[in-house]
Design a protein around this nucleic acid. Sequence first.
DNA 1: GCCAACGTTGGC
DNA 2: GCCAACGTTGGC
Length: 152
Amino acid sequence: MRYWLMKSEPDVYSIADLAKDPEEIWDGVRNYQARNFLREMAVGDQAFFYHSNTKPPGIVGLMTIIEADIVDPTQFDSANKYYDPKSEPENPRWRTVKVGYGETFPQSITLDALKATFSPEELLVVKRGNRLSVMPVDAAIATRLLEMGRQG
DNA sequence: GCCAACGTTGGC
DNA sequence: GCCAACGTTGGC
C-alpha cells in the first residue's frame, strides 16, 4: 500500500465536496508526470488531500483509491474545460483514479507547518515553485503526517 | 493582483 | 533539436 498527495483548489473541489458525495473520479489532470503517478496507483492506496491556492494552503484530510486506471471522461467532452482534442478514444491520453472519502483532519496541516517539519527531499510539496498536482509520499513521512493531522 | 517557476508550443 | 513566447500553477 502506497501513500500519495493530491492537490485541488477548494473553490473548484474541496474535501467537503468529497465528504458530501464520497466517491469521485479525480478528473482534469493534464500533466504527464502527474498522470504517470495516477497510473501507478492501486486500489487501497491512501492519498492526502491538499488544498492549493487558498489561505492557508495545506493538507486537510485523507482519501482512499477505490478504483485504479480509469479513463478520464472529460478529455472527450468538447464542452468540458479539460477537453483534449488530441486524445483519441481508441488510445486515451489521460487516465486517472476514483477516490473515496476517508477523513477530514480536525485541523489542517498548513504549508507553513509542513515547511517547518519536512525538507523538500522528504516531501516534495514544500519545495518552492513545485507545481506537480499528484505526487508520492514516503511511508515514514505519511505516518508522521497522519499523527500531525489526527491530533489536530 | 503580482510574479516566480516551469511545462508546452511552434518557428526556425 | 533549440529556444523564445506563451499559458498555467500556486504562494504570497
